[in-house]
Amino acid sequence: MAGSPNFMTGSIPLSGPDRMALFMVGLSVLFHLLFAGLMLGFSKLETPRIRPPEIIDISLVSFPGPAGPSAIAGPGPAPVQTKTAPAKPEIRPEPVAPAPAPAPAPAAPEKIGSPSQGQEPVKTSLKQKSLDREKILQSAVSRIEQSVEQGRPQSVTRAIDALRGKDLAPPQPSGQASGSGGAGPSGVAVGSGGGWASPALLNFWSPLMVDHVNRHWAYHEFLVGASANERAEVVIKIRKDGTILEHWFMSRSGNERFDQSVERAIQKMNPVPPLPPGYPVEQQEIILNFRPPKS
């Protein structure tokens, strides 16, 4: 009876080959569905990550100028900050040379052209130690100055001024000692003609000071971007106990990043090593010549 219609169910009985064909068609459909599913799955594996929404990026800062290479310190026109000594000029003016006939000091009417004209507090302390001798000397100096002022060579004037500490040019950048004040290790120079009773102690103190500054100076050659010949000279005025009273740039490098690294170092290194025991002055000015390290 195979192949004859079944009128009770309304279905048409299938013959053996028909069943096989239907089975094959079903198998084929199943296979195709499976294949399509696999392909879909593989395609998802190829792009495993659904792209998330874009990140919204908003600036919280508006800079006055164009977004230059460096906001912290760049070669651009950003204003130079002066933090600790805003009233100080960037390059400290040279002390004025003594006038030919300055006004006499109240306590010493004869003291014309007194060395204290520079108003350095350290000289006040020296006066207390040798008051009588100083009166005589100052008197002599004033007379000599009056008598030889016109004929004195300029070099002598400069030398005397220099010895008075009023126009003390720093030594050469090489850091070699220029005077007899004694040089410490390489790169340490003590200003001209020092006659202090214990220069050896100062020679001992100088490398300590250099090491102290170097330890507080954070410098990365790429971040700073300084060239080998750049340098910045900073004057710091310290008390005998090492407290930094003030500081100012005597000359800037021209590279603001470099100068700011120097500025931060100065701010971080306070206090510095105290001056040697018995140091004859209460305050001391130190010129720090910052140069990029050899790479």
Binding site: E120, K123, G165, L168, G195, W196, P280, V281, Q284
Partner: peptide, 8 residues
């Protein structure tokens, strides 16, 4: 004076 005023 030199010692007192010299800048190191």
């Amino acid at each position: 004076s030199a010692t007192a005023n010299a800048q190191i």
